[in-house]
Simulated scan of single mutants.
Amino acid sequence: MKPLTEQGFAADLHRALAQPTRSISPKYFYDELGSALFEQICELPEYYPTRTEFALLRQHGAEMAELIGADAQLIEYGAGALGKVRLLLAHVERPQSFVPIDISGPHLLQACAALQAEHPALKILPVVGDFTHAVALPAAPEPGAGQRVGFFPGSSVGNFTPPQALKFLAMTAEQLRGGGLLIGVDLIKDPALLHAAYNDSQGVTARFNLNLLERARREFGAQFAADGFSHSAFYNAPLRRIEMHLLSMRRQIFSLQGIDYEFDAGETLHTENSYKYSVAGFQALAERAGYRPGPVWTDAQNWFSLHWLQAPPR
């Protein structure tokens, strides 16, 4: 196969399938169907992060809004359905604008329309794009006006490896100079609880994972056996991360745009990591990225945390 220089799902999937150890970014989960399936995951009884973070935002939203301050520009990375930001907007004083960033355009624009109906006076400036790279943002508030503040809920920072997380945090520290970042971080806990969260009894997470291959079938005509792959998720304790894989159930061929890739039984395509942190460990990482760690809010069981990180001055 010739080297691929183009970007996007097809090119990255070819690159992943051509490697001895196959791995692809979890950002490709989030087409319209994948985004809808993730919203279903967030409602599952086994999936503790969403309800725990919602509870923290309800309990401490006013304290967080004080740190955000009046007339702020609020930027949400990986915005999704915009459920959690509503709990902040209930307390933030005169937000200058709200800039949600998400890779799934139709899902984002639909969510923005619903939020706009609830907040007619709020200036909503959606950005469809990959928030893991520097994207073009609207102008920041003028000096002397409100802060530019990032919001990154949902423990998505755990999808990055620690070096990737450091790079992402350093990028946001530059974008948010003079302001801060409010970020959700999942904490180290009982592996049994983690296993249940990523292997739910209704099989929604399995459908979410398998949808990556179905997306390749829909968009590029990929050919593979309908029952050829299964969902596999487990906690890798030494690396402090959940791993999600698509597991080949037998020897088979996966065909993509006329190129055949062979899978042996038991071989996998690694689709996601979800790293778990201690509070101190994450604060140390944020400090290396240029932030000054501030208040941290955790639930009574220490399952989940929300961190306020002060960005460098302008």
Rank of each mutant, 00 (worst) to 15 (best):
M1Q: 08
P3F: 12
P3C: 13
T5W: 06
Q7G: 04
G8C: 07
A10H: 12
A10P: 00
H14W: 05
R15C: 04
L17Q: 02
L17E: 02
A18I: 07
S23L: 09
S23T: 09
F29P: 14
Y30V: 09
L33A: 05
G34R: 14
S35I: 04
F38K: 06
Q40E: 15
Y47V: 05
Y47G: 10
Y48T: 02
P49N: 11
R51P: 09
F54D: 03
R58C: 05
A62I: 13
Q73H: 06
Q73M: 10
L74G: 12
I75T: 05
I75V: 12
A79C: 03
A81G: 15
K84R: 07
R86M: 04
L88T: 06
H91E: 09
P95Y: 12
Q96E: 08
Q96M: 06
F98V: 14
F98K: 10
S104M: 01
G105E: 10
H107E: 02
H107L: 05
L108R: 06
A114R: 07
L115C: 07
A117M: 00
E118Q: 10
H119Y: 13
G129H: 14
G129D: 08
F131T: 11
T132I: 04
A136Y: 13
L137M: 05
P138D: 07
P138H: 03
E142V: 00
A145N: 00
G146M: 01
G146V: 00
R148K: 07
V149N: 05
G154P: 03
S155M: 03
S155P: 02
G158K: 03
G158H: 05
K167V: 06
F168K: 02
L169V: 08
A173C: 04
A173D: 02
E174C: 10
E174I: 08
Q175C: 01
L187Y: 02
L187Q: 05
K189H: 01
K189M: 01
L193W: 13
H195I: 00
A196V: 04
Y198E: 03
Y198S: 02
S201C: 11
G203W: 13
T205P: 02
A206S: 15
A206Q: 15
A206I: 14
F208T: 08
N209Y: 02
L210R: 15
N211V: 11
L212P: 15
L213I: 15
E214P: 15
R217N: 09
R218S: 15
F220N: 08
F220D: 10
A222N: 08
F224S: 07
D227N: 11
G228M: 03
S232N: 11
A237M: 04
L239C: 15
I242E: 03
M244I: 13
H245F: 06
R250S: 13
Q252C: 12
I253N: 09
Q257H: 08
I259G: 06
E262H: 14
E262W: 14
G266R: 11
E267W: 04
T268R: 10
T271E: 05
E272R: 06
N273L: 13
Y275E: 09
Y275W: 15
K276L: 06
Q283L: 03
A284R: 13
R288D: 14
P293D: 11
G294S: 00
D299N: 10
A300Q: 10
A300W: 01
N302W: 04
W308G: 06
W308P: 08
L309M: 05
A311E: 01
P312I: 06
R314W: 01
